[in-house]
Amino acid sequence: HSLPGKKTTNKVVSHLVLVEPGEIFASPDPSLPDSDLHTLTTLCEIINRDLLITIGWAKHVPGFSVLSLVDQMALLQSAWMEILVLGIVYRSLPLSEELVVAENFLLDREQCRNTGLLHLHAVLLQLIRKYRKTKLDKEEFVTLKAMALANSDSTNIENVEAVLSLQDHLHEALQDYEKEHHPEDNHRTGKLLMTLPLLRQTANEAVRTFCQIRLEGKIPMHKLFLEMLEAKM
């Protein structure tokens, strides 16, 4: 787990920083020659592993584990791609045009063009530019990620009140954090929340892209990734 970058008195935010998973690394199959299919295979393998990590992480989001199993499943099935996209976007903030899918697996525009991911690359860059302009920090990133999980707009929620309470809890945490760290900008919480529609739009585009890859059937995809994609169909 990463150590907090700055001290914050908000316990939810500091807990989220503490439980943030460590860096993710690609483990490409050395027996495969370098090719666009190999790139996509590695990408799908990273996504599957990131999904496993994300499900483990969700259990540590304050208030998530007290929800019913049905509601935990509903939130994750709705929000998993937003959570994965936000991770890639945050990792890519220091670079100009490349997507940092894993620490040792970057995708540039040309690779995205060759693998059919050019449109996805473009929409991800729009989101990256937006967060770069906002100077999104780690505390805000981890809190927004938890908010994406709680705010998934799933239609399969059993206990709506409990999910609304989780949303309020995280909203308060973000407001607290901004009061403490950005007192000069009263609108910063709102600005961050106003990035969530583009995050959802980008995640939906990513789901469409991987559903297409699945339909084409050329790339091996792990069972968890397939199961989560199917939940989106």
Partner: peptide, 19 residues
Amino acid sequence: TERHKILHRLLQEGSPSDI
């Protein structure tokens, strides 16, 4: 839950490191 058995199992039982 039958259609989503891996997610169900991961949430109910193990940590991801068990998989």
